[in-house]
Design a protein around this nucleic acid. Sequence first.
DNA 1: GGCTATTGTTCAGTGCACCAACGAATTGCG
DNA 2: CGCAATTCGTTGGTGCACTGAACAATAGCC
Lengths: 153, 153
Amino acid sequence: MAAVDLSTHPGHLARRLQQAHHLLWNTMVSEEITSPQFAVLNALVAEPGLDQRGVGERVLLDRSTVADVIGRLTRRGLLDKVRDPQDGRRALLRPTAEGKRVHRRLTTRTARMNQVFLAPLGDEERAVFLGLMRRVADAAERLRDPLAETVTR
Amino acid sequence: MAAVDLSTHPGHLARRLQQAHHLLWNTMVSEEITSPQFAVLNALVAEPGLDQRGVGERVLLDRSTVADVIGRLTRRGLLDKVRDPQDGRRALLRPTAEGKRVHRRLTTRTARMNQVFLAPLGDEERAVFLGLMRRVADAAERLRDPLAETVTR
DNA sequence: GGCTATTGTTCAGTGCACCAACGAATTGCG
DNA sequence: CGCAATTCGTTGGTGCACTGAACAATAGCC
């Protein structure tokens, strides 16, 4: 015996949550564009001209993962990637016209999906839920690099 | 413009949460055994003799993923896998002595890790947080197969 | 008893995610 | 100026996760 109840383990719940989300995304938002891909696209719609490092910071993705995701997006013609003439190390990224179009279309669908996803909770609970997730995630991310005390707002 | 604030998207937060958890697990629990591997091991400590399907149901993992994880665990000698003589389709699984030992050791460490992970929240908030995650995950999982109304409690 | 259904496992393919190590470009220090 | 350290990107390796398809064994029905 001595087995443990996984439903009290936040890590296990987070995984379940993400899987359920993934499924819902596939059916309600897009089968081609994944949620991380949308996140990257979104960051570049907000700030065109970012390099990969910048994107990774915004969406909180590893450098090599960012490279993967960006590779897929550029291959699909949703992103432009050019070497920075000022600094030959970095690649400047911006959404193509098609990329912006896709982003717009998916934005409304993700909103609908989030509604469904959070449907079991009441209005107030949703806010609480998002707030708690954010606090835990923020704190855990700060554990890794005990860096700038920049105001998160 | 028209970009979206990802910190209000539960899917994105769930991903961040899981990543942060993964990192913490690696440093505080084990570098060899991953959290899904522990979940599988845990299910088999609780109910030795399950087949892969049963494990997948308990931990909420896809069949092919379960096969992968179990493959790794058996390769490391933590699990025994034998064909059911009564039903040649299924593989009966049980933890080895070493598997039980590892499970015991990791159990105490995961408890410590969960403390750290949830440290930013107060006692009451933790309970709320876990409860909300569970409700959302349960509901989303029910969306896929609208099945038994079995009492979850 | 024999053929079809169903059930359990496996395999191939894609994508996310991490780390460690490397190469290329730039920065900064002596 | 020149070389070391840093920074950005890529590559290779491992693991999780899903889908869809193939396969094998059993179960069920006529």
